[in-house]
Write a protein that binds this DNA or RNA. Sequence first.
DNA 1: CTGTTAGCGCGTTCAT
DNA 2: ATGAACGCGCTAACAG
Lengths: 336, 336
Amino acid sequence: MEKTTIKDVAALAGVSVGTASMAINDSPRISEDTKKLVREAVQKLDYRRNPFARSLSTSFSRTIGCLIPDFQNPFFGELAGYLQEEVDSRGYGLLLGLTNRSCAIEAKAIDKLLDHGVEGLLIVPVDVGPLNLSHLHKLAQNHFPMVFVSSFYKQIPMNYVMTQLQEGSYMLTRHLLEQGYRSIVIVSGDPDQVPFEQRIAGFYQAYREFNLEISPSQIIRASGNSFQGGYEAIEMALRHGKPDAVEAINDVMAMGIISRLKAKGYKVPEDIAVAGYDDLSISGIQETPLSTVKQPLQEMAHEGVSMLFQLIRNREEIQKSIILSPNLVLRKSTER
Amino acid sequence: MEKTTIKDVAALAGVSVGTASMAINDSPRISEDTKKLVREAVQKLDYRRNPFARSLSTSFSRTIGCLIPDFQNPFFGELAGYLQEEVDSRGYGLLLGLTNRSCAIEAKAIDKLLDHGVEGLLIVPVDVGPLNLSHLHKLAQNHFPMVFVSSFYKQIPMNYVMTQLQEGSYMLTRHLLEQGYRSIVIVSGDPDQVPFEQRIAGFYQAYREFNLEISPSQIIRASGNSFQGGYEAIEMALRHGKPDAVEAINDVMAMGIISRLKAKGYKVPEDIAVAGYDDLSISGIQETPLSTVKQPLQEMAHEGVSMLFQLIRNREEIQKSIILSPNLVLRKSTER
DNA sequence: CTGTTAGCGCGTTCAT
DNA sequence: ATGAACGCGCTAACAG
């Protein structure tokens, strides 16, 4: 019962191996009658075609590799889920790789995925630490199908789908300014990476529009993007006096900040307003529901995977990038 | 540059294909000198062995399938991350499948994974809806290597690793009773599934120990295990009068409940205490840090994957189950 | 419409 | 220690 091959099927159905193969693959060149015969044999023998032999002869693995920074931040988990669904709906499998937010690990993970014969790569970029992208450059040169999702690397400015982060940050900041908040602080991990740069830009844009100055102490850099980063950041921020409002680079950091503020006796939003970015599925069910900027994950996954399959079909495909619109989600944490 | 095969390597190294193969696989039968020669050729040609040919001839895919209910609840994301790491550390790849909390979808997802040639299955069981497990029975009969993680199906009582949920629930309930809480309500989605049964049992155990009665209205069943379920559940609970404390079946539900209680004007824990289960990485950074029962995910993943690889090596391996101890994590949400 | 056959790239015997 | 040859299971091109 371990090794029933197409030969057995062919024998039982009384046809040749080739015919059996075409029948199984529903080729139009085979008559309905023999197809039925073959189907029955398949049923009876509980036959399942050998994917390796298949891949060997077609050179398609029907497999995509997916690189995720980590699963502590639910953002990546949710995104991974949508990516899996999209890939699955195209009859492909999704091989997971973890980069642990490190370029070196990303390189190794990609290497392993390639060793498994993935036809393309969905890469959620690492967002902290120094960037050594030689592994990606080699792939890019070879036009290996890959798409960057939710962010991209400046050194490899191609084939990505993400939200217009600057605009989101702009909308959010603008809203806060309109509400009368004035000393707003923006908080993140590594300011060299794309996501933070774009958000900072939106932040400046809004302030400029209001003809207001920004002092350097309003830009806070913590050592990471997780809630610990939020803890650090809020301590740093408070040293320069109490801000009106805090914008965190993501929802998890925002939660860390709210938690810390509450522990220190501040009320949110009465004393200090806090906003996040992402709109995780848990962000709306916080004790103080979180104002944030929604990233349309499902759409992002859909567009990213579509793009990847285009590249797989035609590697020379013109390189594009898709930029989705963010949505302001206003909840209690910034109410005035 | 697409199709450099072992032939090219052998040619460049000036050896036969067979020798090249052994050299690449570091066989002791090949001399250091020729190995070096081959290594250099591999380097120069940027050779990468064809996984399909390899799998075809060895009949190992070096791939494991993993079934996850969904990625809305961060519990599953975190678990998936640890599983990936464990599988990866053994040189295997992790193919993801989503069951969307439905048995029918689980069956299809498993079928697809098998079509990809996975050598084993890590299954995080579906926890709602009716259970039709014929697909799993067939696999079980064939001794196909599979391990259930974080829960199991009663109809297939084998090869699972989970935490002693009853004990966790018992410890938690006991603690609440010791604190003086008396009308405690326990809340979940589908009470027919293993996790809820075990937790209920722990709940009863604690009450029994205190010689207290439990009224049916203390056991609340919502339509699902997510935060919406929490919303429903708390409405139902309040209809029978205000409870002292609420135990949710997982942290996400607990968050939903706290959020709802706050919106209704209740204070947590002053008016109603709330506890969860799981100890997600975000549970400690809630505005009111959440009391909960920690499930040791990393250990669970480690044990589960170890067990799976034992089964892969020897399908007739005696069936076991590993039960890990939960840990009570007391935070603000149940303080008195 | 169907049967025959030649690879796909690698691992693994046998010989040498 | 190394080379030659075969087979893994399947697809596709070619015949008929």
